[in-house]
């Protein structure tokens, strides 16, 4: 099932280049919603491109859904198991029709022609785009484009879904649409890996990995990682607003019982104080 176990992953793009990944460990259990956080250029995208062997493992160990990523005989099974949605919604489509595009992955795995239309419409329905088969991707909104791209990946029923900054170029509405789709998939038992530099997006995750300059500098629950401003600042990120307020109030002599992650929890905490 959709587990990930990586040890001491090290990777450099060129022989003379400084390593983009430097001894990274990562461990994910099946069905978890995982956020990998870090600023631009910290190596998070490079790391996830190892999960489906888009990048070949240079050093270390990595097994994804029980498949050793170095095993070339298993390459296509690995790629089918790990679905990936990328950042730019415009650069993922192969067809001028949404339905044909969603079918692309199925055709690559030689799914019989007769099964394709059913799988395509089921995948589109799952992302809330039922009946969009005849639409043209370039006439959709950003959020709709990303959901169509997601449907193309989901049609293959992957065990692991990687969202590689899939919300970075979207407006707030599109961002919410993609996050909702990710939550929905987690409910269905898919392992979801979200790559982001938006700290708030990591709050609903089961597990947060924090990266900086090719290293994993923290791993744990959102409560363990996101409530420590020093850690986040070390990674070039800012803590969520409630965390910031919690620490600033503390400095001003007002101590809340728990450090809240959401605005709702913050309101609760402040009320208890009153």
């Amino acid at each position: 099932m959709g587990s990930i176990a990586g040890k001491q992953i090290t990777f450099a793009y060129g022989y003379d280049d400084a390593p983009t990944l430097n001894g990274v460990d990562i461990s994910v259990k099946p069905g978890q919603l995982v956020a990998i956080l870090g600023r631009n250029g910290c190596g998070k995208s490079t790391l996830v491109r190892h999960f489906n062997a888009l990048l070949a493992l240079q050093e270390g160990e990595l097994s994804v859904a029980g498949i050793d990523v170095r095993d070339e005989a298993e390459l296509w099974r690995l790629r089918r198991t790990v679905g990936m949605v990328f950042q730019n919604p415009d650069n993922q489509f192969v067809s001028s029709l949404v339905g044909e595009d969603v079918a692309f992955g199925l055709e690559n795995y030689q799914v019989p022609r007769s099964e394709i239309p059913g799988k395509v419409s089921a995948a589109l329905e799952m992302v809330g785009l039922a009946g969009f088969e005849e639409r043209s991707p370039h006439l959709l909104s950003g959020g709709q484009k990303q959901r169509a791209a997601l449907a193309g990946v989901l049609a293959l029923e992957p065990e692991i879904l990687v969202l590689d900054e899939a919300t970075a170029m979207l407006d707030p509405v599109g961002r919410r649409e993609i996050l909702a789709a990710a939550m929905d998939l987690r409910m269905r038992g898919t392992t979801v890996i979200m790559i982001t530099h938006i700290v708030e997006e990591a709050i609903p995750a089961d597990l947060v990995f924090l990266m900086n300059e090719g290293k994993m500098i923290a791993a744990g629950t959102p409560e363990e990682v996101l409530t420590v401003p020093e850690l986040l600042e070390q990674a070039g990120l800012a803590p969520p607003l409630p965390v910031r307020l919690y620490h600033d109030l503390r400095t001003a002599g007002i101590a809340l019982e728990h450090c809240p992650l959401t605005a709702e929890a913050l309101a609760e905490e402040l009320c208890r104080l009153k």
Binding site: P172, V173, E200, L241, P242, L245, A263, E264, L266, A267, E268, L270, C271, K274
Partner: peptide, 20 residues
């Protein structure tokens, strides 16, 4: 209008609802 407000504004709204 399909728009959000800033997180600080949102927090202020929640706090007010709780009587702060």
């Amino acid at each position: 209008w399909g728009l959000g407000v800033s997180q600080s504004r949102e927090a202020a709204g929640l706090l007010a609802r709780k009587g702060l």
